[in-house]
């Protein structure tokens, strides 16, 4: 492509051949120039490509820088977040420590309360112990010496004298029973409840049979319907059934045939067990008094008892977290319900 140097400086030609030669030389020079121009173009293209590549590179670089900046920003954000989180963690830790402090305070308080309760229980126990021991002794003396008078001096007494002594004895005995019932009642408040699965239907039958054996002259019709088992203290529940069923037997004594039923009433909140009878019943306006200690709705000369039985039953049911209530109508019987959650 490089033009021959000879073509650039042609020799002086003769007239015709010389002209032709000069034209050829010119043509060659022009081709060479074109060639040079072409080459130059090419170089320019290459240079442009180079420029573009450089620009591209610079663009890429800017992109990278942007990315790097983003990463940097993200890192800064992350660091900021981290310190925020750390602050939050610190707060949480402090809160936790406060809670632990509070728990400690509460525990100390609970322990104090427990100690106080225990002390109160001990005192109560000591009290009922001395009631049991010291109140009985004079009663035994009253009963014992009245008996001694009756045995040893009876011939010197008239009927009225003997009747009075009988009354003294009877009352001493009754007071003994009151003391026993009251002690049982106060013990109940402090007793631990040991819950097991109790088949109440079976228990009711068992209790009724024992009670029926104590009333040989009576005509008693008893039915125990199927009821769900309860999770309760069996010995205490037995006491509830003894009290309710004994009442049913007692307050039906004027009926030719006593009809007593144990069953349960199913409702929304589970079931309410009941003992129903066809006895003397009671006036519903006194229903609230039924479960008070020493409360009686009937004449003691007609229906014996100390008035503690239902209070005891109520206390047992309440200590199980249940409820006890009664429905009745004078001369038409009574129905006592209780729940055991």
């Amino acid at each position: 492509m490089t033009p021959a140097p000879a073509a650039a400086r042609p020799p002086a030609p003769p007239e015709t051949t010389g002209l032709r030669e000069r034209i050829a030389g010119l043509e060659a020079a022009s081709r060479a120039t074109l060639n040079i121009l072409e080459d130059f173009d090419e170089e320019k293209g290459k240079s442009r490509q180079l420029q573009r590549a450089t620009l591209n590179l610079l663009e890429d670089f800017a992109e990278e820088r942007r990315k790097l900046q983003q990463v940097q920003k993200a890192t800064v954000n992350l660091l900021e977040d981290m310190s925020y989180e750390r602050a939050k963690l610190g707060e949480a830790q402090r809160a936790l420590l406060n809670i632990l402090d509070d728990v400690e305070v509460e525990r100390a308080r609970a322990e104090r309360a427990k100690a106080l309760t225990e002390a109160a229980n001990k005192e109560l126990e000591a009290f009922s112990y001395s009631v049991s021991h010291d109140l009985r002794a004079p009663l035994r003396a009253i009963s014992g010496f009245v008996e001694a008078v009756v045995e040893d001096y009876s011939p010197r007494l008239d009927d009225e004298g003997r009747r009075y002594l009988g009354l003294v004895k009877e009352n001493a005995h009754k007071m003994g029973q009151l003391i026993d019932d009251l002690l049982a009642f106060s013990r109940l408040g402090r007793m631990e409840i040991a819950r097991t699965r109790v088949d109440l239907e079976e228990l009711a039958k068992e209790v009724f049979e024992e009670l029926a054996a104590l009333a040989p002259g009576r005509k008693l019709r008893f039915s125990a319907l199927p009821v769900p088992a309860a999770l309760a203290d069996k010995a205490l529940l037995r006491q509830v059934l003894v009290n309710l069923l004994a009442n049913a037997v007692k307050f039906t004594k004027h009926r030719d045939e006593a009809v007593i039923e144990f069953g349960c009433l199913r409702g929304d909140g589970g079931c309410a067990y009941y003992v129903g009878d066809n006895g003397v019943g009671f006036d519903m306006q006194y229903a609230g008094k039924l479960f008070g200690v020493f409360q009686r709705l009937h004449d003691v000369s007609e229906f014996e008892g100390t008035g503690v039985g239902l209070a005891l039953a109520c206390r047992i049911v309440t200590r199980h977290g249940g409820r006890i209530w009664a429905e009745g109508k004078v001369s038409e019987g009574a129905k006592f319900y209780f729940t055991l959650p």
């Binding site: 049991s132 021991h133 035994r140 009963s143 008996e147 005995h173 003994g176």
Partner: peptide, 28 residues
């Protein structure tokens, strides 16, 4: 004794008592 407390009964037997009787109130 006058006592009919469970813990007294238990303690008495633990100590080797041969019998435990609560004095009845009724004279007979």
């Amino acid at each position: 004794t006058s006592s009919n407390q469970e813990r007294d009964i238990k303690e008495a037997y633990d100590l080797g008592a041969n019998s435990f009787v609560s004095k009845p109130i009724k004279a007979e």
